[in-house]
Design a binder for these strands. Sequence first.
DNA 1: AGGGCACCTCGGGCGC
DNA 2: TGCGCCCGAGGTGCCC
Length: 290
Amino acid sequence: MPELPEVETVRRTLNELVAGKRIERVTVTLPRIIQRPEEPEAFAAALAGHTIQSVERRGKFLRIILDGLVLVSHLRMEGRYGVYKQDEPVELHTHVRFHFDDGMELRYKDVRQFGTMHLFAPGDDLTLPPLNKLGIEPLEEAFTLQAFKKAVASRKTKIKPLLLNQEHIVGLGNIYVDEALFTAGIHPERTPDTLKAADWSRLYDAIRATLGRAVDAGGSSIKSYVNGQGEMGMFQHELLVYGREKEACRSCGGPISKSVVGGRGTHICLRCQPLPKAGKRANQVKQAAK
DNA sequence: AGGGCACCTCGGGCGC
DNA sequence: TGCGCCCGAGGTGCCC
């Protein structure tokens, strides 16, 4: 599921629902979710008695700020949070429960069991894994065109895997990277050295616009994603290429095709996102030499 | 550095 | 038409 817009939507909702609540105790029923400290019992014991102050976000990670602790949570593919009354039936795939002292509880559900939680002392969370190597936030002021190019332009990888790598820019996942590349008219297999100034500018604008609009829409609900209040995001209705294989391109009417790039399902309009002929430049050099 | 696979469960699609 | 199997799914991390 969740890329930056979905995590940001969860963050906002969760912040409304749990800020100010005091944790009485924590129940962990799937130990592998808890990565730090190693023992789930130690994780639960450390959180007891602490009050949630706010919910922040770094890339696709949630940072739950407590008095004297920071809980870093990644939803991976299908992790979900919800706030329930303690007497409500516990749904299948609920793995962690934060029992508050007011009769409510925060529950973490995760069908695929891929999600992670790390607990840190304040300040440590940003300097230790998994947050320490994260790249620039694409919706913050520091993300300028210059900063964007500086982060990725010298790399030799195809542009799609490059944009998915959270060490350079955070927040893009498989949906929004396809959307941004389409909007910019750039084929996902192009490498940075083939991009001209106008390409960089369009790609930069497309990343900001795509993520910004998706945040405004409350994210995309592709399969199971719902925010902390169980509401669906609406951006899936605005998707231009993702999930639209064989449908008509909204720009040129041509077919959207699906292939695999960097091991990920990839949606493109070949007419709008042409792949420059390999070796064209080399051929031009040969021609000039004759 | 880049590609491939593993982590897990579920559901959709395809084939019989 | 119905059932069962296989593959793929929005993300990362570790292997080579």
